[in-house]
Every structure is written in C-alpha cells, then in structure tokens.
C-alpha cells in the first residue's frame, strides 16, 4: 500500500509536468484547430533559459526566491517566443489548408531543435540546484522538495489559468474565439490579439514545466522536448483536445500510468504506455474523456 501511494505521488508529480505542457496544446488547438508540434521545443527552450539565468545567479545561496525568479524569466522569454512563432510561422499560412499549417508546425519544431543544438550546443548540460533540497517522510513515503515544488507550482498555475479563462474579459474572449473565430470577430474582438495571448500563455506554462523538470532531473539537452512534447500531446488527446480540464486530467493520468508501469511491470514499457493509451483513445473515444463531439453542421 505504501509503495502504491509512493508511486501515486511520483506519478502525480510527473503528471503535473505533462499537464502543464498539455494545456498549451489544448489551448492553441482551441483557437486555431492546430496541433502545435513546436510546443515541446518551447518547453526545452524554457529549461535552457532557466539554465542560463541560474548560472547568472550562481554564487548566491539557493533559495525559493531565486528558483521563482528563474521560472518567471523563463516563462516571460518563452511567452515572447510563442508569440513570435505564431506571428512569423503560423499567421502567414493561417488561411491555407489545414495540412499546410500542420507541416509548418513540424518545420518550426525541427528548426527550433536544430537551432538549439547550434546555440546551446548538442551536449547535455547539468542544471544547477536552485532551491534548498530536503526530503520529507510521511506515512512511510518519501517526498522530495522538488516533487512538492512541482505539484504546488502546477496547482497554482492551473488555478490562475482557470481564473483567467473563466473570469477575465480576455479569457472569455478566448473561449468565444475557440467556439467560432468569425463570430468572435463580429463581437469586435481582435482575434489576432487573442491568438497571440493564447500562444503566450501556453508557451509560458511549457517553460514553467521545463524549469520544473530540469530542477528534478537535472540534465537538459536540445532534444529533451520530443518525448515530453509527445506524451503531453497524448495527454491532451486523452483528456479531449480543446478541453482545458481535459488536459489536466489527461496529464495526470498519463504521468501516473507511466510511473505505475515502470514501478510494477518494467521500465521497458515507460514510453509504450502513453502511446498504447493513445491508440485505445483513438479507437474507443476519439473525442477524449472530457471532449465534446463536434457536430458537423449541414
């Protein structure tokens, strides 16, 4: 039982990371009907921005404050990166066929991965320790301070996001845009602005996830975004792409099942489980757990 609870905590911690990334996929899909394949790479850039900011802070005592500062800078930089990706790559082809947009997204992903190898170097870098480390023992379980940070920060960001989407004027406009781009324009909503905000938010969340995972692992490399990006994508599809609560649920489920499979079966199946789930979802419930079936209009 204790082992199970321990695995559950580990799973929820990993799942929070997937959930943060999955939110970006689902929000962008909501406004543009686009799978932003470059999203995992934004997460990687977030980790690198965190790395360079941390190096600047080196020599200072590790503290929660500097960890938060690192995360904040990474979120802002990646928010801007997200806006640039949309402006420069997606906006010019937005009116073209859906396939054009999808191929563009794959192109952006490859571009960022290769640019990162050029700029950051292809070899892995070790992420410096930001916050004081401690282990907590509770009911036979061991909770690391990193795990607690991951879960606490994720919950905080998700609560803030939920408030933003449900209560603010811009958040309501985001929901309006995700329902119908044309109808939103007819309300006087600048849909370009809302799309920029969506990319900024999604990318900032991915950057937070990048810093959180880098604090835990703590090794980063230019291709680290691929597995996380893919699994978060699966999480978004499992939860129902376009659904914000779905992305969180999907992320937690994928993270938990991955940890459980590694814990109880074999680490060989670590990556197989996510894609196994993807296949099952696509066969049994293509709209995802919390997704709505899109009715085709006649």
């Amino acid at each position: 039982m204790t082992t199970f609870l321990q695995q559950l905590v580990n799973g929820l911690s990993l799942g929070s990371i997937y959930a943060l990334i999955a939110l970006g996929y689902t929000m962008v899909y909501g406004v543009l009907r686009l799978i932003n394949f470059a999203h995992g790479d934004v997460y990687m850039v977030g980790a690198y921005v965190g790395y360079y900011v941390s190096r600047r802070l080196q020599g200072r005592e590790p503290s929660i404050g500097s960890a938060l500062l690192v995360m904040l800078v990474a979120m802002v930089v990646c928010g801007i990166l997200g806006i640039l990706i949309e402006r420069l790559a997606y906006r010019p082809v937005r009116r073209e066929a859906r396939l054009t947009l999808l191929i563009t997204a794959i192109g952006v992903s490859l571009f960022i991965e290769n640019a990162a190898q050029l700029v950051f170097g292809p070899d892995p870098k070790f992420f410096p320790s930001l916050a004081p480390r401690a282990d907590f023992h509770f009911a036979g379980m061991r909770l690391t301070s990193e795990q607690i940070t991951v879960i606490a920060v994720s919950v905080l960001l998700m609560v803030l996001l939920r408030f933003f989407i449900l209560k603010t004027r811009t958040g309501k406009a985001m929901r309006a845009v995700s329902f119908s781009l044309d109808a939103a324009k007819l309300m006087g909503i600048s849909t370009d602005w809302i799309i920029s905000v969506t990319f900024a938010l999604g990318s900032a969340l991915a950057a937070a996830a990048g810093v959180l995972i880098a604090m835990q692992i703590p090794k980063i490399d230019p291709l680290m975004g691929i597995p996380y990006g893919l699994k978060a994508f699966v999480a978004a599809v499992l939860g129902g792409i376009g659904s914000v609560p779905g992305a969180v649920l999907g992320g937690l489920l994928i993270g938990t099942s991955e940890v459980m499979v590694v814990g109880y079966l074999s680490s060989t199946y670590r990556d197989a489980i996510a894609f196994g789930i993807l296949i099952l979802v696509l066969i049994l419930r293509p709209q995802g757990l919390l997704g709505r079936v899109q009715k085709e209009k006649v």
Partner: peptide, 20 residues
C-alpha cells in the same frame, strides 16, 4: 445560424457583445 457562443453563459454572450 445565430452562432451564439454555446460554451458561454447567456450573460457572458451579452458581455462579448459589448467587448469592444
């Protein structure tokens, strides 16, 4: 076809009308 925002409340739909 009206295109009311089916995912928003009636109140929020009216707010969207006054968005700008």
């Amino acid at each position: 076809g009206r295109i009311v925002f089916a995912n928003l409340s009636v109140q929020e739909n009216l707010e969207m009308g006054a968005y700008a």
